[in-house]
């Protein structure tokens, strides 16, 4: 039985840990399917975490914090669009600029407002999101297997966890079953074809970036107002890049990107469990080595398996209408 509950808690943490990755990967899909590289998922996630924590602290309501985070991230996406869509700057440079800006900005603002570099005050229970217990979770716990799945794996997560997994089928539907999705995919493949069909290429890319901003805000808010009760310096910890890797590994497709996110989440959950555990014959594995696991996996997967990942054809290229 202990083994079963170990597995259940591992899956439970996988779902939780994967949540920001899922939001970020879905955000990435919108931007990159429209032909705009989004390296700035990392910076935007950090910004969202900061704004959500601060907003929620001052306004006393985590939902208002989330709303502010959405506004902040959409603004950053627009900034990225302004630089790289309207002014045709280099998209990677624009993203790197945003990432660096946000690291400095969040640290400096926290220092100015709260006197601690890169740390915001701890949120009270009213100011943050709490775990959601699904109905009858307690009473059903003792039902064999199904009870464990329902009560120990599915129940007791933050609202963002449920939202994240709900987002995936919605993204799939929007991208593949609607005319907006058709235009989105077309604009990332051949913007000239979209232009000559009488659709505004720039407007399409801005729309995609706006959706990207909304989605990434959820990832940040999850970190600072749900899993944690405050913001701390560089708390996104490379999750934006990891999500980008998951998206590429998933070939810019929501379903496979989800699988990749879960895989990364699982290795992270596993490394937490493995810390301090004595393995037979090997002994205790150094913490640093275990912590590197998800990142090593990223490199291995990207280098080894995704050789044939075909990116949207026009990605990274600003659309120049007149020669």
């Amino acid at each position: 039985m202990e083994f079963l509950s170990d597995i259940a808690s591992l899956i439970n943490s996988t779902l939780r840990i994967s949540t920001p990755l899922v939001f970020a990967a879905m955000a990435g899909i919108f931007a990159e399917r429209s032909g705009v590289i989004d390296f700035s998922l990392e910076g935007k996630m950090l910004m969202a975490a900061f704004v959500a924590a601060v907003g929620s602290y001052f306004l006393g309501n985590p939902w208002l914090g989330l709303l502010l985070a959405i506004i902040a991230c959409v603004s950053l996406s627009m900034l990225h669009g302004f630089a790289s869509v309207t002014y045709k700057g280099d998209q990677v440079v624009s993203c790197v600029a945003i990432n660096i800006l946000i690291i400095g900005l969040t640290t400096a603002l926290a220092a100015a407002w709260f006197g601690q570099a890169g740390l915001t005050p701890t949120l009270t229970e009213d100011q943050r999101f709490l775990e959601v217990n699904l109905p009858f979770a307690e009473s059903l716990r003792d039902v064999p297997i199904l009870g464990t799945i329902y009560s120990d794996i599915l129940s007791g997560h933050y609202i963002f966890v449920y939202l994240a997994y709900l987002t995936v089928p919605i993204v799939f539907w929007v991208v593949f079953k609607t005319s907006f999705g058709l235009r989105l995919r077309a604009v990332g493949e051949n913007p000239s074809a979209v232009d000559t069909a009488g659709i505004n290429v720039f407007a399409m890319r801005y729309k995609a970036l706006a959706i990207n901003g909304v989605l990434i805000a959820f990832a940040g808010a999850h970190l600072s107002t749900a899993v944690n009760a405050n913001f701390f310096r560089e708390m996104s910890a490379g999750r934006g890049y990891l999500a980008l890797a998951a998206m590429i590994f998933g070939k810019w497709h929501p379903k496979t990107a989800l699988v990749a996110c879960l895989l990364f989440g699982f290795t992270d959950a596993l490394q937490i469990r493995l810390q301090g555990v004595e393995l037979p014959a090997i002994g205790e594995i150094p913490v640093q080595l275990i912590q590197a696991l998800p990142y090593v996996l990223t490199v291995v997967l990207l280098a080894g398996f995704v050789g044939k990942a075909i990116a949207p054809n026009a990605i990274g290229q600003p659309y120049i209408k007149e020669r």
């Binding site: 077309a186 493949e189 074809a193 979209v194």
Partner: peptide, 18 residues
């Protein structure tokens, strides 16, 4: 040609006129 190569003929034709 102003065609999206990995789209079908149908998708290319209705693009913008869905």
């Amino acid at each position: 040609f102003m065609l999206v190569e990995n789209f079908t003929v149908l998708e290319n034709i209705i693009l913008g006129f869905e």
